[in-house]
Computed example of a mutant assay.
Amino acid sequence: MTEDLSPYAAGTAYMDGRYMPISQAAIPITDWGYRRSDVTYDVVGVWQGNFFRLDDHIARFRASMNAFRFRPRETDEDIKAILHRCVALSGLRDAYVAMDCLRGRPPASVPYHPAYARNYVTAFAVPWVSLLNQEVMARGAHLVVAETVRIAATSVDPTAKNFHWADLTRGQFEAHDRGADFCVLLANDGTVTEGPGFNIFVVSKGSIVTPSSGVLEGITRRSVIELCGELGLPIEVRPVLVAELRDADEIFMSTTAGGIMPAARIDGRIMSNDRPGPISRQVQDAFWVRRAEGWHATPVNYAAADLPAAS
């Protein structure tokens, strides 16, 4: 096989008005995006040359920027064009495509306050990344309920994507120490929230429920709710008690980086003969069938690779 010598083959980044190979992308270590996790972001997937729900991701990204009071110069249409060009320059057919907005840092001539920092957008496209490898996807993930409590929504709004992952990271170490794949975090009131990068769905007696608060309102989560309507599967969006999670017949997760991901164990308890359950598989299969049919698809504009180098 001929080696791809393109400098963009490993991925493409956009930073503050310029495109570059992913290996050249960097932010200053003094930037508040780095030093204070003062960033919001979103991630959209490309599969078989198509973005999935691109407009929905752009809209959520803008809502997150507004929630955290970011005001970059790029419009929604600018951001959309940037993402298309990042994928096009990379030539990727399946890609993980991220967009970030960073606070920056106030220049020396103004007060040292976030209101005076210059906000800017970055983006990148790299080969597709999945939270679960194929082996774990086939056997079903092993989950644990973490002792670490989710950061309160009154402190950090979970509906706006953010880099405040200290609770999720601590929970993941708990999962690792207990031989599990992922953690699920509870809110202060003991209700279920989410895991590191995914929403949770609990299946009991043929009905599905997903938490209504303390969570990112995932785009793939929205897709699952739509699919359940198409499939005639009962689904509720409401507070979920931890006992419901631990006693579930089935559990599955949803995320951009993996789609529908079934679980097989919770806190060591085996579900569905230690394999993904029938409803989880039904939703998972329907998701990829609909994707293959062009559901919510936006074809990547690969001709954008031929545009001038400047933004």
Score class of each variant (00 low, 15 high):
residue 257 A to I: 02
residue 288 W to L: 10
residue 245 L to M: 10
residue 247 D to T: 15
residue 304 A to K: 09
residue 281 R to S: 13
residue 302 Y to G: 09
residue 301 N to I: 09
residue 276 P to E: 10
residue 264 A to S: 15
residue 230 E to D: 14
residue 299 P to H: 11
residue 264 A to P: 07
residue 237 V to D: 00
residue 289 V to D: 12
residue 233 L to Y: 06
residue 303 A to L: 13
residue 267 D to Q: 09
residue 242 V to N: 12
residue 268 G to H: 10
residue 263 A to P: 05
residue 260 I to W: 07
residue 265 R to H: 15
residue 303 A to D: 15
residue 307 L to A: 15
residue 303 A to K: 14
residue 275 R to W: 01
residue 304 A to S: 15
residue 287 F to N: 00
residue 300 V to N: 06
residue 272 S to F: 00
residue 248 A to G: 05
residue 225 I to S: 05
residue 284 Q to E: 13
residue 254 S to L: 08
residue 232 G to F: 07
residue 278 P to T: 04
residue 302 Y to D: 10
residue 229 G to N: 08
residue 261 M to I: 05
residue 230 E to Y: 12
residue 238 R to I: 06
residue 269 R to L: 07
residue 300 V to P: 06
residue 228 C to F: 04
residue 253 M to R: 01
residue 299 P to A: 13
residue 298 T to N: 05
residue 288 W to I: 11
residue 274 D to G: 15
residue 237 V to M: 06
residue 231 L to N: 09
residue 286 A to E: 11
residue 287 F to H: 11
residue 233 L to G: 05
residue 301 N to Y: 02
residue 249 D to S: 04
residue 261 M to F: 02
residue 227 L to W: 01
residue 277 G to R: 02
residue 259 G to R: 05
residue 238 R to Q: 10
residue 236 E to Y: 07
residue 290 R to Q: 12
residue 282 Q to Y: 00
residue 295 W to E: 06
residue 283 V to F: 00
residue 298 T to M: 12
residue 262 P to E: 03
residue 229 G to K: 04
residue 255 T to G: 14
residue 238 R to C: 07
residue 239 P to F: 09
residue 292 A to H: 11
residue 260 I to K: 07
residue 267 D to N: 14
residue 262 P to N: 03
residue 306 D to T: 12
residue 223 S to V: 06
residue 268 G to N: 11
residue 247 D to K: 13
residue 282 Q to D: 00
residue 259 G to Q: 03
residue 285 D to S: 12
residue 278 P to H: 07
residue 238 R to S: 13
residue 290 R to W: 11
residue 293 E to H: 09
residue 258 G to V: 05
residue 274 D to Q: 12
residue 228 C to G: 03
residue 242 V to G: 02
residue 234 P to I: 09
residue 235 I to P: 06
residue 250 E to V: 03
residue 228 C to E: 10
residue 251 I to E: 04
residue 247 D to Y: 13
residue 275 R to N: 07
residue 281 R to K: 14
residue 256 T to E: 09
residue 238 R to F: 06
residue 224 V to D: 01
residue 266 I to D: 05
residue 241 L to D: 14
residue 286 A to P: 01
residue 258 G to R: 08
residue 302 Y to K: 10
residue 253 M to D: 00
residue 272 S to K: 04
residue 245 L to V: 09
residue 301 N to E: 14
residue 272 S to V: 00
residue 257 A to D: 04
residue 250 E to C: 06
residue 269 R to N: 05
residue 256 T to K: 02
residue 291 R to F: 14
residue 261 M to G: 03
residue 259 G to N: 04
residue 238 R to T: 08
residue 228 C to T: 11
